[in-house]
Simulated assay, not measured.
Amino acid sequence: MINKLRKVLAGSILLAAITGTSTTLQAQNILPVDKAATQETKMLYSNMQKLVQSKVIFGHQDDLAYGVGWAYEKGRSDVKSTAGVYPGVYGWELGHLELDSAKNLDGVPFNNIISYVKEVYARGGINEFSWHFNDPVTGATAWSTPTSTVKQIIPGGNHHEAFVKYLDKFAAFANQLKGPKGEMIPVIFRPFHEHTGSWFWWGNKECTPEEYIALWRFTIDYLRNTKKLHNLLIGYSAADYAIEKDYLERYPGDAYVDIIGFDAYMDKDADYFKKDLENRYQILEKVATEHHKVPALTEVGYQRIPDPNWWTQVLLPVISKYKTAYVLTWRNWKTEHYFAPYPGQASVADFKKFYADPHIIFQDKLSHSIYTQKL
């Protein structure tokens, strides 16, 4: 499998040399913003830079934990049950870690998540964390919208220490993510996401740009400098935006971001969705090039996927045009709420075509060498 992937990559690099395709990220071999990043984290980031030139890794939230009609069955995955292989990126949720709960806000035991992360790492998949954590001031959920929380938890705020305790719990959890030799497992950490919207307590109407940036910078500085977590690739993930200024208004700076992306969900209008994706991608690619960051579609989906050709006729034509390290579809919870096909679902046949497209990478085209040697 390693040799197969090397051949694929060698072909894409040769094609770039022949056609003049941009290889800006690859040529510069950008290092993680954490100067003390572990060797495995550096290698993963370097290999993602190479893959992004011509490939897109497919990902799925909570893929190994549960799916439509099942939960916690070892080895099971809705993606594997339909495409025949596991996804290449796995999203996990940390909400309720701050509450000392044994389970996250979706009911997944944190001990299970630790096991899943180790399993994914062993076979060369990539782990990503989001964290919908409760408001440290009011105790309300992430979906509350007060207008003073961020101001109160940044340095100098009267609830700053409450937020620091949250970060201490995150660090304690992250320190359990170790490989067989005791090495820290690299993960993508995507905090305070969808900040261009206004549905979380860190949203654009809930705090000023300066407050948001202060929150982001303190969080990353504390985790890497005080808690000595050097296995994090930091993801900056917006919601809707129409112009570059909106995307960068709360950007915390190049020293605090490794991966940049956005979340996009389709409602009913495929033409509008594709047009919006195109616009946001054009901005994202420009920003990624100018700031030397790896671009990604950090969340995407069409709930219940009623269009049987959505994967190859709506999503693929757009993502294959732009540099995209990975696309992460949201979770499969129940028959009323899922974003990847499961056996018998209307888009299964099209999803198999999506998997077979040469632009797309699932787990079968990745191996643990993504963490140990240059591809």
Results as ranks from 00 to 15, higher is better:
270 A>P: 02
44 L>I: 03
278 E>K: 13
361 I>Q: 03
95 G>P: 05
268 K>E: 13
371 Y>W: 00
85 V>M: 10
139 G>L: 04
330 W>M: 02
10 A>M: 09
291 H>T: 10
174 A>V: 09
322 Y>S: 11
62 D>T: 03
141 T>F: 07
95 G>H: 05
256 Y>C: 02
329 T>M: 07
315 L>M: 08
64 L>H: 09
350 D>I: 01
18 I>S: 08
84 G>R: 06
166 Y>G: 06
284 L>M: 08
126 I>D: 00
317 P>V: 04
132 H>D: 12
94 L>W: 01
293 K>Y: 02
91 G>L: 03
127 N>M: 07
130 S>L: 13
192 F>E: 05
304 R>E: 14
175 N>G: 12
150 V>Y: 07
375 L>Y: 14
152 Q>W: 10
361 I>F: 15
345 Q>T: 11
235 G>K: 01
200 F>R: 09
78 D>I: 09
272 Y>Q: 04
122 A>I: 00
189 F>P: 01
69 G>C: 05
263 D>P: 03
24 T>K: 14
98 E>D: 11
25 L>V: 06
367 S>E: 01
170 F>P: 01
104 N>Y: 10
370 I>G: 00
263 D>E: 04
212 Y>H: 09
302 Y>I: 12
137 V>K: 11
108 V>Q: 07
132 H>S: 07
288 A>K: 06
201 W>K: 03
127 N>K: 03
357 D>P: 10
254 D>G: 10
116 Y>I: 09
360 I>P: 04
195 H>T: 08
313 Q>P: 00
355 Y>S: 06
243 I>A: 12
53 Q>N: 15
177 L>H: 07
272 Y>P: 00
269 D>P: 06
346 A>R: 13
159 H>L: 13
191 P>Q: 05
55 K>H: 14
330 W>Y: 05
171 A>G: 03
6 R>Q: 12
1 M>A: 12
89 V>F: 10
55 K>V: 02
31 L>V: 02
322 Y>R: 05
72 Y>K: 12
113 I>S: 04
224 R>M: 05
294 V>H: 00
197 G>M: 06
62 D>Q: 01
374 K>E: 14
266 M>H: 07
146 P>I: 02
233 L>E: 04
246 D>W: 06
242 A>R: 14
181 K>G: 15
23 T>F: 09
141 T>N: 11
245 K>E: 15
28 Q>T: 13
244 E>A: 14
284 L>Q: 06
129 F>C: 04
360 I>H: 01
121 Y>D: 09
322 Y>K: 07
47 N>Y: 00
291 H>M: 03
322 Y>C: 10
143 W>M: 09
98 E>T: 08
197 G>V: 10
20 G>S: 11
302 Y>E: 14
164 V>Q: 08
57 I>A: 08
101 S>E: 10
340 A>F: 15
316 L>Q: 01
51 L>G: 09
289 T>A: 15
286 K>C: 01
111 N>P: 05
89 V>N: 00
271 D>M: 06
36 A>E: 14
191 P>R: 04
193 H>R: 08
342 Y>C: 03
92 W>C: 02
191 P>T: 06
221 D>C: 00
202 W>F: 12
211 E>L: 04
280 R>I: 07
240 D>C: 06
